[in-house]
Design a protein around this nucleic acid. Structure first.
Lengths: 325, 325
DNA sequence: TTAGATATGTCAAACGATTGACATATCTAA
DNA sequence: TTAGATATGTCAATCGTTTGACATATCTAA
């Protein structure tokens, strides 16, 4: 692969001159500029970004750690993050932690060794104090860490509230809620808190079941549904903390002869694309996935530029009513 | 951030010695080794991979260009590629081309500038000759390029054949087929070819509609369905070239009162996770996504090691019968 | 006693680019 | 005529690491 020296020699100019046209600094005549460009074309020269990174001490790389890109929510998030980052001149290094704490740590070290300019952390199984040693720009996704690490999330409490109130308004008297692992200190837990608050307030009976929301394991979900409706056949409403889980519920109800929305009403969460193409289409709480991705990148950029950033950016959610309620 | 010099100074040894323990070469006493490791811990030293890459002329980076990670098929593919690549010591740079030729070219240049060790090309809107200038290791996904660029795909002809024969065996007499853009020279087109061959052979009537299979645009899909069933109300079978399209078809049939599988039988393609949790569950042709991902990485690795590789690796497909046929 | 293994050090070049300091030459306008 | 703008060149340092060549010192075993 051609180097700047090859270009210089072939164009009959000095390396400094080539560097000058490449970086647009100093005086360069039009003639020289075009000659250099032509030579680059001829040699198919591509400046070595590794060498540049070394000197500039910035790699233009952003690490994205998520549980799993094959989960629709994270897939859409990754898509938006990548697209926006690319517009800003950043490349995304994709890391699937599979919710394994060891892998998470491993990825963080790897990203540090590779001197990424920032990390978007969307997978949270590590202990909080492990984050604090990380001095590189970082933003967490849906988790508030002790230090002043900026977090982006959507209004989880409101989301839970909207879902619960909606189900109650639709006449549900016993509502099940399937949430993520409450021990991980995720902001998504606020959905559960809101749900409980609303149900208590309206004196509606509730059933809460914990699961791993971020890795989808259909068999596990199926088992949960089976157990749920066996133990509580009178459940007439369900609020699932992800559309994927809600979809499984819809499927299960169909299989055991419960009609939706007549017998059971279902509200999902996220509003990923699937929510709209299953039958019946899912009523759900929409998270602004695109804006969250953009916000995450922006928060990283601000940190790189030395700007102060808010510790917690909360984006709005919205209830999308479709056919399951 | 600490450098190897800082470690050396603090540990009271030379830089060469630190490098030796880091790379496990030459003679090192146990005492020195552990002293150096301890010092690294203390300083939270992480060797600068950028500097290493520059010297070694390898970045351990693999570029993955796909239309869109938010498409379930590519999401699952990306997941498998990343996981396997990571096991082999490679990092994945994610690129969503959005099927835009300009973006595709742009990404390729970017990856070259960043001196990735290889590229997995899963988005194909560029002209064939543009690939030939690419001398870095590359493997294409589902497209055979003129030169001898290795391709990985699954047995598309067989897939089309299985789907068509299955629908005919189930009694369909007029089968619609929704395929991708046939002008792009994708190997997926073989599905259509097989489909046509089988239908001709069995004298079954067919309707073929082209679309963009790799970017999912629900509105477009809906419109196609509407038009299809308006123009051909007697269609009693449908073979869609992706599960996502098949899911839309299932949804549409439900909406217009066509019963599945009684009135219309549907076969999808890919067997992504969604196929199994929509209702009714989708009969589909399973592509071995995991193996394809692994194969893509392996083919890249072989090229890096200077081994000769097969020009085309075709993995087996399988018909999974569920409830839509 | 001594050759070799073991352990560590010094030094310099290399990877591919950027950049500041400085030199030199030509051109332009006051 | 001449100061300044324009255009290009030379040179060397720098980013952080690896590596080969070579020196030196100690230890071990024949």
């Amino acid at each position: 692969m051609a180097t700047i020296h090859d270009v210089a020699k072939r164009a009959g100019v000095s390396v400094t001159t080539v560097s000058r046209v490449l970086n647009n600094r100093g005086y360069i005549s039009e003639a020289t500029r075009s000659k250099v460009y032509r030579t680059m074309e001829e040699l198919d020269y591509q400046p070595n970004e590794i060498a540049r990174s070394l000197l500039r001490k910035q790699s233009n790389l952003i690490g994205l750690i998520i549980p799993n890109v094959s989960h629709p929510f994270f897939a859409e998030f990754a898509d938006r993050v990548e697209t926006y980052a690319y517009e800003c001149g950043f490349k995304i290094v994709l890391c699937n932690s599979q919710l394994d704490p060891a892998k998470e740590r491993d990825y963080i070290d790897m990203l540090k060794r590779n001197r990424v300019d920032g990390i978007i952390m969307g997978s949270h199984t590590m202990e909080v104090d492990e984050y604090l040693k990380l001095h590189s720009p970082i933003v967490t996704f849906d988790r508030q860490i002790g230090g002043d690490i900026p977090a982006v999330s959507s209004d989880n409490y409101l989301g839970g509230e909207l879902a619960a109130k909606h189900l109650i308004a639709k006449g549900c008297r016993k509502i099940a809620h399937i949430c993520g692992n409450l021990e991980l200190k995720l902001m998504a837990n606020l959905r559960t808190e809101a749900f409980m608050d609303v149900l208590r307030e309206h004196a509606v009976e509730s059933v809460v079941i914990e699961t791993d929301m971020n890795v989808f394991d259909q068999v596990q979900y199926e088992r949960i549904m089976e157990k749920l409706f066996k133990q509580h056949p009178d459940v007439d409403g369900l609020f699932a903390t992800s559309d994927i889980i809600a979809a499984t519920a819809v499927r299960h109800c169909g299989a055991v002869g419960k009609r939706i929305p007549d017998d059971v009403k279902v509200v999902g969460y996220d509003d990923v694309a699937v929510a709209n193409w299953i039958v019946p289409a899912l009523t759900t709480v929409r998270q602004p996935i695109g804006e969250m991705g953009r916000m995450a990148v922006d928060l990283l950029r601000k940190q790189m530029d030395g700007e102060a950033v808010e510790r917690c950016s909360v984006l709005p959610v919205e209830l999308i009513e479709r056919s399951t309620t």
